[in-house]
């Protein structure tokens, strides 16, 4: 069941009835040989989706999309890895915005929010040797028809919750492959941090707004996201003209 309307993303589609994690499955394929670029591992029943190190992505069976795309961004220097994150985040945002009304934003660095609620997560796993990029597995989880979420993810939403209707999953998968391919080809054409930065900031959740954040020590503070540095860290304007830089574990959005 290859996807239509794409050149390579999803041309080889491994649709699994059930799998622990599509990213893990993709890694297993990569360990064996070199699947063609754009190979997609997809399932509608992922039992142990991976989140950040040590955390998981929960999903009810046959309600949602879970897929991993195998890419070889050898054209991108490893220190510009965040450019791939921007390309993929924008691709998933394009996809969500095409199906759901309301403000669809990228919550730094790569969650997709509808309003103040999360509908998609990305898990990008790369292999780098020296200064050469080897492989990339882009895992994408999308909440589509699921309407009830466990209490420890209080800010989750789905396409169905936002629109009041349910969606067929295979056409959505095709549409997502298409937006990923578009953005990936643009990145290949211009593999720098600056390619997507203006657009990424334009779609960034809480960009340019005064908002509340929390430090790891529990301190709550007010700041305004003003940009990113070249590593993808968040630049935050603080009172009295101070500019602070935040890495991933140094800040929580409130």
């Amino acid at each position: 069941m290859p996807t239509e309307n794409t050149l390579f993303v999803g041309k080889v589609l491994v649709q699994l009835p059930e799998v622990d994690s599509t990213n893990r499955y993709a890694q297993m394929l990569l360990a064996k040989n070199r699947p063609i670029e754009g190979t997609v591992i997809s399932t509608f029943h992922q039992t142990q989706g991976q989140g950040q190190i040590g955390s998981t992505w929960e999903s009810e069976p046959h309600q949602n999309l879970a897929l991993s795309i195998i890419l070889y961004p050898v054209f991108l220097p490893p220190h510009a890895a965040f450019a791939l994150n921007m390309a993929l985040s924008l691709a998933v945002r394009d996809f969500v915005a095409a199906h759901v009304p309301g403000p669809v934003r990228i919550k730094w660095p790569n969650d997709i929010y509808i309003g103040d609620r999360k509908t998609c997560g990305l898990l990008i796993q790369n292999t780098i040797a020296g200064n050469r990029w080897q492989t990339s597995v882009a895992g994408i989880g999308v909440n589509v028809n699921q309407c009830a979420f466990s209490p420890h993810v209080p800010n989750a939403t789905s396409f169905a919750l936002e629109t009041g209707q349910s969606f067929e999953l295979p056409p959505l998968l095709t549409a997502l492959c298409h937006t990923v391919e578009q953005r990936y080809l643009s990145l290949k054409n211009s593999p720098t941090m600056h390619t997507f930065l203006p657009e990424y900031l334009q779609q960034l959740y809480r960009f340019g707004e005064v908002a509340l954040f929390r430090r790891p020590n529990g301190q709550v503070f007010q700041g305004t996201i003003t940009g990113l540095n070249l590593d993808g860290k968040l630049l935050m304007a603080r009172p009295k003209g101070i500019l602070e830089v935040f890495g991933i574990k140094e800040i929580t959005f409130l």
Partner: peptide, 20 residues
């Protein structure tokens, strides 16, 4: 050469580092 020796996480990108 080619063995994974560690992971370096950068802004939620998880990078397996292979020895050269």
């Amino acid at each position: 050469a080619g063995n994974v020796v560690c992971i370096i996480e950068a802004m939620k990108l998880f990078n397996e580092i292979e020895s050269e």
